[in-house]
Design a protein around this nucleic acid. Sequence first.
DNA 1: TTGTAGGCGTTATCAG
DNA 2: CTGATAACGCCTACAA
Lengths: 343, 343
Amino acid sequence: MTNRKEVAKLAGVSEATVSRVLNGIGPMKESTRQRVLQAAKQLNYELNAVASSFARGRSGNLGVVLPHVPKVHLFSTYYFSELLGGIGEAVHSGGYGLLLLFRDPTVVYDYVSLYRTQRVDACIILGSSALETEKTAVHRLADERLPYCVMDQRFDHPQLSIVAADHEQGSYDAVKHLIERGYRKIGFLNGAPQYSNSEDRMAGYRKALKEAGIAEDDTRVYQGNYSRTSGKKAASQVYRDLARLDAVFVSNDRMAIGLMQGLRELGCRLPDDLKIVAYDNSDAASFTEPSLTTVKVPFYEMGRLAADRLLKQLAERDRNGASAEPIREKLRTELIIRQSSGN
Amino acid sequence: MTNRKEVAKLAGVSEATVSRVLNGIGPMKESTRQRVLQAAKQLNYELNAVASSFARGRSGNLGVVLPHVPKVHLFSTYYFSELLGGIGEAVHSGGYGLLLLFRDPTVVYDYVSLYRTQRVDACIILGSSALETEKTAVHRLADERLPYCVMDQRFDHPQLSIVAADHEQGSYDAVKHLIERGYRKIGFLNGAPQYSNSEDRMAGYRKALKEAGIAEDDTRVYQGNYSRTSGKKAASQVYRDLARLDAVFVSNDRMAIGLMQGLRELGCRLPDDLKIVAYDNSDAASFTEPSLTTVKVPFYEMGRLAADRLLKQLAERDRNGASAEPIREKLRTELIIRQSSGN
DNA sequence: TTGTAGGCGTTATCAG
DNA sequence: CTGATAACGCCTACAA
């Protein structure tokens, strides 16, 4: 492995000059620059990223923490893949590395350790939940004023860094759409309760009902876990309650797809027998039969935004040592009307 | 940032001993071990990964090179997300880091540079094509005997490291299935030609026709690029040729979905008017209407296999300096029969 | 504009 | 079983 010393020798300059040229730092004579570049090329030399990181005390990586979800191919999920794509774009164009960090389900995760071991300069936490251990772990990050961002999970504390979508509003819009079309017996198939996500949807659902003067009815609320399978499982309950339901609001497209499959197998005709509004606007939403009326969430943009902000914080910190202000962003959703809601 | 020296002092041992304890290397007295562990915990000390990498001369990362595909959210693609998931699983359980490397479309990529800069110890190349520049870049990796693996792209040279699926066989099976059901006018909507992938499918298609004594007819071959949009575009041509077609074999599910959407908009009834066999067995295949008969490809396993092999090579190399044997694997596909082929 | 030199936190080799 | 010590390759004041 050819190193800086050899290049310096060949170019007839000091090692420091080699570094300056390759990092484009400080003023230098063009002729020197050329000589160094020439020598580097001739020797096939490039900066050793690990050594640079070491000397600089920064890894140059942004970490993305991924949850462990049993039996699910995480990346093949619209939610995660879009978030990751957005993050990737920002990280790439910011010149950082993107390090994927897989959570081990058996271990209490210590985010701070990622920084202590210097594997990342900042990190984005996906699939975070409201579990107590999780909450303390995130608080620890905030206490240490480390650059981090939690994705789409609300905590009560206003000083935590979070990029999220406004799921209460999104859900409200979805349910209101059904109400406006004249449906009043509206069920709700929600996802796993440990995400604030799910609570927010519930809040939006309730708000819309209340506003329309429709009494809530817990027996119309079904519980899934965002998987297609859970949607399919819910089908039998929904089918049983069909007489008491005009429509169902479903917390994501995957569950809605499962639900529709299940209902159809039970002999339902959709959307005639039941109107459905789903959530996410994944690719699949446009080609199910009937196509899904659904709430579009800008996951890609959320990922990009979070990463952009973090990189800016890092740059700022390197410039003047400023410690990070919390990132607080809540993005808007948009209702996409298709056939499943009876149009 | 607390470092080894402080821990050594607190534990009353040398720095070397601290390292040995934390790396679990060599024999040591249990009491010493405990003292060191105790001190480390008390000081909140953990090994600095960057410093370790530096001293060891290995980054501890496996890189995954991602192609740039304009206007496509790469991760939201069944193909890439499954591959990535498999790679992730292997890398994670192997204790390595997973570094995502985004190709810049404007730059000729030099894979060797990834190793020279020490950003990765090994890498997996996704979305590789048969372009000349790509071929030389990969050959360079092989010449340098670096640990790498190309995913699902065949090159003529038998010494290159590749994990692939047997797409010729898969395509053959698909077309044969149609022939066995009595269809003889079989079209083919293929993906972008710069992937060996696509050639192989073509070969399988031809082989099946030939074996059944069906004359080839180039006017029944349509060109897409694996995107849904391209499938939808092809719909008008296919529709025009409908009288000369019993069935179409489509190179992936996404295009098939686009094709079906397009055909339906033109007034086709599926599968009555046209039988379709697709490729990939993505999640969507089971909930399109009609559901897709398709060729299942073990992308996840392919990713895992490639990563596993590379990690083994790295371990081997660290143990005895052995330089890597090329990885050569071709995995089997499986035909999944659903409704779109007329069942 | 360029050179000198100290330091970054480990690993690994070699003694003891 | 443990300690001392020389790398590792680069960055960055500071000096010239």
